[in-house]
Amino acid sequence: TTEYTFTDDEEARRAIEELKKRGLTFRYEKHGTTWRVRVD
């Protein structure tokens, strides 16, 4: 499991789109302004 942290909404959304394109399994949660994206 790899975890990424983003504080920029645009950056987080781009990363999420990219992961979807690659067909990877991931989860994300947003805490205030911080996004945590975990890739299995």
Rank of each mutant, 00 (worst) to 15 (best):
residue 10 E to N: 12
residue 13 R to H: 10
residue 1 T to M: 12
residue 13 R to D: 04
residue 7 T to P: 03
residue 22 R to H: 07
residue 6 F to L: 02
residue 24 L to K: 06
residue 21 K to R: 13
residue 26 F to D: 01
residue 40 D to F: 15
residue 40 D to M: 14
residue 22 R to L: 13
residue 3 E to Q: 06
residue 5 T to Q: 07
residue 39 V to D: 01
residue 25 T to W: 13
residue 23 G to L: 03
residue 6 F to V: 00
residue 1 T to D: 08
residue 8 D to F: 04
residue 12 A to L: 14
residue 28 Y to M: 09
residue 31 H to R: 10
residue 16 I to R: 01
residue 6 F to Q: 00
residue 25 T to L: 10
residue 40 D to L: 15
residue 35 W to R: 02
residue 12 A to V: 06
residue 3 E to K: 03
residue 18 E to F: 12
residue 35 W to P: 00
residue 2 T to M: 12
residue 29 E to P: 00
residue 28 Y to D: 02
residue 33 T to M: 09
residue 1 T to I: 14
residue 18 E to M: 12
residue 19 L to V: 02
residue 33 T to W: 04
residue 2 T to Q: 10
residue 39 V to K: 00
residue 37 V to C: 03
residue 17 E to K: 10
residue 17 E to L: 12
residue 12 A to R: 02
residue 37 V to H: 01
residue 21 K to A: 12
residue 24 L to V: 12
residue 17 E to H: 09
residue 3 E to T: 13
residue 27 R to Q: 13
residue 15 A to N: 04
residue 37 V to Q: 00
residue 23 G to C: 05
residue 23 G to D: 03
residue 37 V to I: 15
residue 29 E to D: 07
residue 30 K to G: 01
residue 34 T to E: 11
residue 11 E to H: 08
residue 7 T to H: 12
residue 34 T to C: 14
residue 31 H to V: 14
residue 10 E to Y: 10
residue 39 V to H: 02
residue 1 T to L: 10
residue 38 R to V: 15
residue 20 K to E: 09
residue 17 E to P: 01
residue 20 K to Q: 10
residue 6 F to R: 00
residue 6 F to M: 02
residue 29 E to V: 11
residue 40 D to C: 15
residue 1 T to H: 12
residue 36 R to P: 00
residue 25 T to M: 10
residue 37 V to K: 00
residue 18 E to A: 10
residue 39 V to Q: 02
residue 31 H to D: 13
residue 37 V to L: 08
residue 19 L to N: 01
residue 40 D to E: 13
residue 21 K to I: 08
residue 7 T to D: 10
residue 7 T to N: 10
residue 8 D to T: 13
residue 7 T to Y: 14
residue 17 E to R: 13
residue 14 R to Y: 07
residue 32 G to L: 04
residue 12 A to T: 03
residue 17 E to S: 10
residue 18 E to V: 10
residue 7 T to V: 07
residue 12 A to N: 01
residue 3 E to V: 14
residue 4 Y to I: 06
residue 21 K to L: 09
residue 11 E to W: 06
residue 33 T to I: 09
residue 40 D to P: 09
residue 14 R to K: 12
residue 24 L to R: 05
residue 6 F to E: 00
residue 34 T to G: 06
residue 10 E to S: 09
residue 16 I to N: 03
residue 9 D to K: 08
residue 10 E to V: 10
residue 29 E to G: 04
residue 11 E to Q: 11
residue 5 T to F: 14
residue 14 R to F: 07
residue 40 D to R: 10
residue 18 E to Q: 10
residue 34 T to H: 07
residue 13 R to F: 13
residue 15 A to Y: 15
residue 22 R to D: 04
residue 32 G to A: 04
residue 29 E to W: 15
residue 5 T to H: 07
residue 7 T to G: 05
residue 22 R to P: 01
residue 34 T to M: 11
residue 23 G to H: 05
residue 9 D to I: 11
residue 26 F to G: 01
residue 36 R to W: 15
residue 40 D to I: 15
residue 12 A to G: 04
residue 2 T to P: 04
residue 36 R to I: 15
residue 36 R to S: 07
residue 39 V to T: 03
residue 30 K to I: 09
residue 15 A to I: 11
residue 37 V to W: 02
residue 25 T to P: 08
residue 13 R to Y: 12
residue 25 T to G: 06
residue 2 T to A: 08
residue 34 T to D: 04
residue 20 K to S: 08
residue 15 A to V: 13
residue 5 T to A: 05
residue 21 K to T: 08
residue 6 F to K: 00
residue 15 A to M: 15
residue 10 E to W: 09
residue 16 I to M: 13
residue 22 R to E: 05
residue 36 R to N: 05
residue 17 E to Q: 11
residue 19 L to A: 04
residue 21 K to S: 09
residue 31 H to Q: 12
residue 3 E to R: 04
residue 12 A to E: 00
residue 18 E to L: 11
residue 5 T to Y: 14
residue 8 D to V: 05
residue 21 K to Y: 06
residue 5 T to D: 04
residue 35 W to V: 06
residue 31 H to F: 12
residue 24 L to Y: 12
residue 20 K to M: 12
residue 36 R to V: 15
residue 24 L to Q: 05
residue 1 T to E: 09
residue 30 K to M: 06
residue 40 D to K: 09
residue 38 R to K: 11
residue 4 Y to A: 02
residue 33 T to Y: 07
residue 8 D to Q: 04
residue 13 R to I: 11
residue 14 R to E: 07
residue 7 T to I: 07
residue 40 D to Y: 15
residue 11 E to N: 06
residue 18 E to H: 09
residue 23 G to S: 03
residue 17 E to W: 11
residue 3 E to S: 06
residue 32 G to W: 02
residue 4 Y to P: 01
residue 9 D to R: 09
residue 23 G to T: 02
residue 38 R to G: 03
residue 26 F to H: 02
residue 17 E to I: 10
residue 22 R to Y: 06
residue 32 G to D: 05
residue 2 T to G: 05
residue 5 T to C: 13
residue 38 R to D: 04
residue 12 A to H: 02
residue 32 G to P: 00
residue 28 Y to T: 08
residue 12 A to S: 02
residue 25 T to R: 13
residue 15 A to W: 15
residue 27 R to K: 10
residue 23 G to N: 05
residue 15 A to S: 04
residue 25 T to C: 13
residue 36 R to G: 02
residue 35 W to I: 12
residue 8 D to I: 05
residue 39 V to M: 04
residue 20 K to H: 07
residue 14 R to G: 05
residue 5 T to L: 13
residue 24 L to T: 04
residue 29 E to F: 13
residue 4 Y to R: 03
residue 39 V to E: 02
residue 12 A to Q: 02
residue 32 G to T: 02
residue 19 L to Y: 06
residue 31 H to K: 11
residue 19 L to T: 00
residue 18 E to I: 12
residue 37 V to D: 01
residue 18 E to S: 10
residue 7 T to Q: 09
residue 28 Y to R: 02
residue 24 L to I: 12
residue 36 R to Q: 06
residue 9 D to Q: 08
residue 15 A to C: 15
residue 12 A to K: 02
residue 38 R to P: 00
residue 14 R to H: 08
residue 32 G to F: 03
residue 2 T to Y: 14
residue 7 T to W: 09
residue 14 R to S: 08
residue 20 K to W: 08
residue 15 A to G: 04
residue 26 F to Q: 00
residue 5 T to P: 01
residue 38 R to N: 07
residue 16 I to T: 02
residue 38 R to A: 09
residue 21 K to M: 09
residue 36 R to K: 13
residue 6 F to S: 00
residue 34 T to W: 08
residue 2 T to W: 14
residue 14 R to N: 09
residue 25 T to Q: 10
residue 9 D to F: 13
residue 8 D to N: 14
residue 33 T to N: 14
residue 36 R to L: 15
residue 22 R to W: 08
residue 24 L to D: 03
residue 13 R to M: 14
residue 4 Y to V: 04
residue 22 R to I: 06
residue 38 R to Y: 15
residue 9 D to W: 15
residue 39 V to Y: 03
residue 20 K to P: 00
residue 27 R to E: 10
residue 38 R to T: 15
residue 13 R to T: 08
residue 1 T to W: 15
residue 18 E to Y: 13
residue 8 D to R: 05
residue 34 T to A: 06
residue 34 T to L: 13
residue 4 Y to C: 15
residue 25 T to I: 12
residue 23 G to I: 01
residue 4 Y to F: 10
residue 25 T to E: 06
residue 25 T to D: 06
residue 31 H to N: 12
residue 22 R to T: 06
residue 27 R to Y: 14
residue 28 Y to F: 11
residue 15 A to P: 00
residue 33 T to K: 10
residue 28 Y to S: 05
residue 21 K to W: 05
residue 15 A to E: 03
residue 7 T to C: 13
residue 10 E to R: 10
residue 7 T to S: 08
residue 34 T to I: 14
residue 37 V to A: 00
residue 35 W to N: 02
residue 39 V to A: 03
residue 3 E to P: 02
residue 30 K to T: 04
residue 13 R to V: 07
residue 31 H to P: 01
residue 27 R to L: 07
residue 4 Y to Q: 03
residue 20 K to R: 13
residue 11 E to T: 13
residue 27 R to N: 09
residue 26 F to L: 06
residue 29 E to L: 07
residue 38 R to E: 13
residue 23 G to F: 03
residue 19 L to M: 07
residue 2 T to C: 15
residue 24 L to G: 03
residue 12 A to C: 12
residue 16 I to D: 00
residue 6 F to G: 02
residue 22 R to M: 12
residue 2 T to F: 13
residue 19 L to H: 01
residue 15 A to H: 07
residue 18 E to P: 00
residue 22 R to C: 10
residue 5 T to M: 10
residue 24 L to F: 11
residue 17 E to N: 10
residue 37 V to P: 02
residue 8 D to H: 05
residue 36 R to M: 11
residue 5 T to G: 02
residue 11 E to A: 12
residue 21 K to F: 07
residue 10 E to Q: 09
residue 5 T to W: 14
residue 22 R to Q: 11
residue 39 V to N: 00
residue 28 Y to H: 03
residue 28 Y to Q: 03
residue 13 R to Q: 09
residue 26 F to A: 04
residue 6 F to I: 03
residue 13 R to E: 08
residue 37 V to M: 03
residue 11 E to L: 08
residue 4 Y to S: 02
residue 40 D to H: 12
residue 11 E to V: 09
residue 36 R to D: 03
residue 4 Y to E: 02
residue 39 V to S: 02
residue 27 R to A: 11
residue 16 I to F: 05
residue 22 R to A: 11
residue 37 V to R: 01
residue 29 E to K: 07
residue 35 W to Q: 02
residue 25 T to F: 12
residue 20 K to I: 14
residue 23 G to W: 02
residue 26 F to W: 03
residue 6 F to C: 08
residue 14 R to D: 06
residue 8 D to K: 05
residue 38 R to F: 15
residue 14 R to Q: 09
residue 17 E to Y: 11
residue 27 R to S: 15
